[in-house]
Amino acid sequence: MSTTESASNYDSLEQMPVRQLLESINNEDKTVPLAVEKAIPQLELLVNATIERLQQGGRLFYIGAGTSGRLGVVDASECPPTYGVPHGMVIGLIAGGDAAIRKAVEFAEDDEQQAWKDLQEYDITNKDIVVGIAASGRTPYVIGGLTTCRENGIATGCIVCNAGSAVAAASDYPVEVVTGPEFVTGSTRMKAGTAQKLVLNMLTTSTMIRLGRVKGNKMVDMQLSNLKLVDRGTCMLMDELQLAKPEAAALLQKYGSVRAAIDAYNNGLPS
């Protein structure tokens, strides 16, 4: 039996008071970063492979089902507003299509052929890299997609939460974060899902930094899509260029991004 499906370390959960439930869940959650830490050498290989392909004009695809698929879609959707990259650079695909983001599509994950069909809709090539996300490491949708990618010379990686899985075997760059039994037996939306989210954060954040999408520690290419982000961008300019708020705000409005405003100011362009 896979460790993610093994029996919880706790029992009689329905008899626990709320405080005990919360403290017990929290105690289990504390083990997740330690499990991620052990997988950093594997993750480094995947990040480097991803950077190389994106530098050459390739794309990063995620394929997954259920919670794993949703986490991939979330990570992909957050890259453009955070780092100002094109929407087609990081793409999340979920078994069952976009409808499965909100509501489970029965048996969608059991189709070994569908992931490759989904990827073909994006004209996938060997410039790209495909990362399968599967807590169990045995999801047919993911295994089939990764296997066919390798047959077509496309680089593959994965994020799984069991050791020695079929998904890892189908990956050039497997990342195995062994999180152990869940608080509620088999509920991989908990520790396994948390581990996958942490790894996805590390993967795309490290990649975007190495692609030059961060200056110092600031998101200088972020999209100014709401007032909070406009204010954040203004504060970045105030700090970087030692400007008063009105001048920084005017500069940001004129040039439309923190990076463009900094470049314009440093090059002596009119504000």
Rank of each mutant, 00 (worst) to 15 (best):
T4S: 03
S6A: 12
L13A: 07
E14F: 10
E14W: 12
V18M: 13
R19Y: 04
L21N: 13
L22V: 09
E23I: 02
N27C: 06
T31W: 00
V32D: 03
P33R: 01
L34R: 11
L34A: 10
E37S: 06
E37Q: 11
A39G: 06
N48H: 14
A49D: 15
T50G: 14
E52Q: 15
R53V: 01
R59L: 11
F61T: 01
G66S: 11
G66V: 03
L71D: 13
G72K: 08
Y83C: 03
G84M: 03
I91S: 06
Q114R: 12
D118S: 07
D118V: 00
I124C: 06
I124Y: 01
N126G: 06
D128S: 10
I129E: 12
A134N: 07
A134P: 08
S136V: 08
I143C: 06
T147M: 02
N152L: 01
T156G: 08
C158P: 03
A163C: 09
S165D: 15
S171M: 09
S171C: 09
D172E: 14
E176L: 05
V177G: 05
P181G: 00
T185P: 08
R189E: 02
A192D: 02
K197H: 04
K197G: 07
L198R: 15
N201R: 04
T204N: 13
T207V: 02
I209R: 11
I209L: 09
I209Y: 11
R210N: 12
L211Y: 07
K215W: 05
V220M: 01
D221S: 03
N226P: 03
N226Q: 02
L229A: 05
C235A: 11
M236S: 10
E240Y: 04
Q242W: 06
L243Y: 15
P246S: 05
G256L: 08
G256Y: 07
D263I: 02
D263F: 00
A264T: 04
P270W: 00
S271Q: 08
S271L: 05
